[in-house]
Nucleic acid binder design. Structure first.
Lengths: 148, 148
DNA sequence: GCTTGACCTCAAGTTAACTTGAAGAATTAG
DNA sequence: CTAATTCTTCAAGTTAACTTGAGGTCAAGC
């Protein structure tokens, strides 16, 4: 378990020191100690940062990300909450797939007005199951109804 | 092709009038005309808004979204650019899958420190193909050598 | 021992994406 | 016709996620 200065972490992760301090302040990562004033990070932080970067790119806020993985690496959250988060990500994945399909369709379909193209509309509908109706008797997810 | 007041669009899309005006200002949507001062929207805008919402939830900025679909519905972009966008989304999907798998793993793995768990590390590596490099013989080029 | 450079804190500035509020215009309801 | 709604513009405010800058600390190299 190597010990890293903030500059090392920045170099290895591609994230600026100012952002790293901000993440620490926000409770997403933590330095293991100080040498003088300087934060000392464990190299484990690099894995955590990878997760953070992924989450951000996926459109999650820092607060949401902090909710998935606690400050010290992994969560104090219950199995249920984590699986709910995973379900939320699954929903996002389905949306992204629809978006990608739509874009590919638009790229290749020669029709003049896509908004009237049947294929196009169907593509959009795929992701349109926002209301939670899952057209199967899904396992009754009790309790946590995340996001709104 | 129905004509809608901004309030109707807001009610049907769940997006506030202020945000709709902002989107118009940003070139993401456009009203078809005015009646007096009031914007008149075609109901096609609802489809466009669906795409916008999807894109946002996927972590794209309004500018990026505007780059995918032009103001009037669909793009003035070339096939190539659109497929490049689709590829970008594919990358995001792969990241999200890795993130979801990681979270599910964390939820179920009883190990004390996930950061040292082999399964965990492997999960993270799956999404590690950032550079657009297509899985050739991984040359150990300088730069971000993740995990140590 | 002194300077250098990487770090520190704290306050203020920045950008995106909106929202809110004031003040006014036009449509609709009675 | 009057009043109430629903819209309009424009300016300013808000939040998240950082960055920047000023002024200070501290261990290391010369």
């Amino acid at each position: 378990m190597k010990v890293l200065d903030i500059g090392d972490v920045a170099a290895l992760s591609g994230i600026k020191p100012s952002a790293l301090r901000y993440y620490e302040e926000a409770g997403l990562i933590s330095s293991i100690s100080r040498r003088g004033l300087r934060r000392q990070f464990s190299d484990e932080v690099l894995l955590q940062l990878k997760l953070i970067v992924m989450g951000k790119s996926a459109g999650f806020s820092l607060e949401e990300i902090a909710g998935m993985f606690g400050r010290n690496g992994m969560p104090e959250l219950s199995r249920d909450v984590l699986h709910a988060k995973a379900d939320e990500i699954d929903r996002k994945i389905r949306e992204l797939i629809a978006l990608r399909n739509t874009i590919r369709h638009v790229a290749d379909c020669p029709a003049p007005s896509h908004l009237e193209c049947a294929t196009f509309r169907r593509l959009l509908d795929v992701a349109g199951k926002r209301g939670g109706r899952r057209r199967k008797i899904a396992k009754p997810k009790r309790g946590v109804s995340p996001t709104r």
